[in-house]
Design a protein around this nucleic acid. Sequence first.
DNA 1: AATAAATAGTTTGAATTCAAACAGTTTTAT
DNA 2: ATAAAACTGTTTGAATTCAAACTATTTATT
Lengths: 149, 149
Amino acid sequence: MEPILNKVDLARELGRETAELRNELRQFLQKKIKESNWDISFELLEILGLLYKRDGMIQQEIADILIKDKSSVTYLITNLVKRDLVERTEDQTDRRNKQIFLKAKGRELIQQLGPWVEELYTKATQGIPVENIALALAIARKMNENLKL
Amino acid sequence: MEPILNKVDLARELGRETAELRNELRQFLQKKIKESNWDISFELLEILGLLYKRDGMIQQEIADILIKDKSSVTYLITNLVKRDLVERTEDQTDRRNKQIFLKAKGRELIQQLGPWVEELYTKATQGIPVENIALALAIARKMNENLKL
DNA sequence: AATAAATAGTTTGAATTCAAACAGTTTTAT
DNA sequence: ATAAAACTGTTTGAATTCAAACTATTTATT
């Protein structure tokens, strides 16, 4: 029988369980991607998915939402540009910003593979009341806020 | 005002918040490590911390607990061996296994820096009832189980 | 007893991330 | 008007991770 854990151990475990969830998603998707004609990684797919929902984001926004270092985002966007999946354009109103837009090919890819991601998340959340997931999220956010004080 | 999210979006957000928490821990610790005389990374520190609690684990156990690929664990343990912080010994009862033990220097390091990690987790969890964190963890676990069906 | 399957760890090449520094631009302060 | 601070993105070198294949050993099956 598992020992009763204190808050610190529970918090650590929470981080690990969500890391594991992400790995499982990645592995599931990796198999699906292999079966398809696309050559794309989980990380690249995440960015395409984000742009599908909100095209034209700037790199810093992508970094903030996906919790990635801005240099990682530069690296991944460059990869996507090379594959002709997105384009990088300069923001006319603020020349520090670069806007990233899906290209036709990128849109097609995410329209094909995107539903798999949703399907997996749907499967993961099956039978769990939405208010429970909302509570878990609120707790994780509170922990982050506590560290920012 | 933030729109009401569905379960899938909430689950994604949960993953991101915990990833952000980990990054914040890493950055806090990185500053502390810089102030100290040690040269160690967050990833290496995690392994030392694990061994401090349960010395003599085998590599696969470390991989399972820290949610890392076994090849990553091989890489990190090799690094720790080079720095004379741990030793790798063959398991007499099962020659597939390698047991990893802290060396005196590794023990000293984790005794000095370990409390900082605990302190940060304690700060992160301040004011949050333990049963709430336990519930968040149960939800994350349930999502993992759902994917394994 | 022999063979097949599973497990633990290593190796390799590539991808991604981390940390820091830098350049260009905009915003804020003086 | 000018300088300082902040912001965005890029670059670089190193660290870590991912994916796959491999070897050696143990366990399960025939």
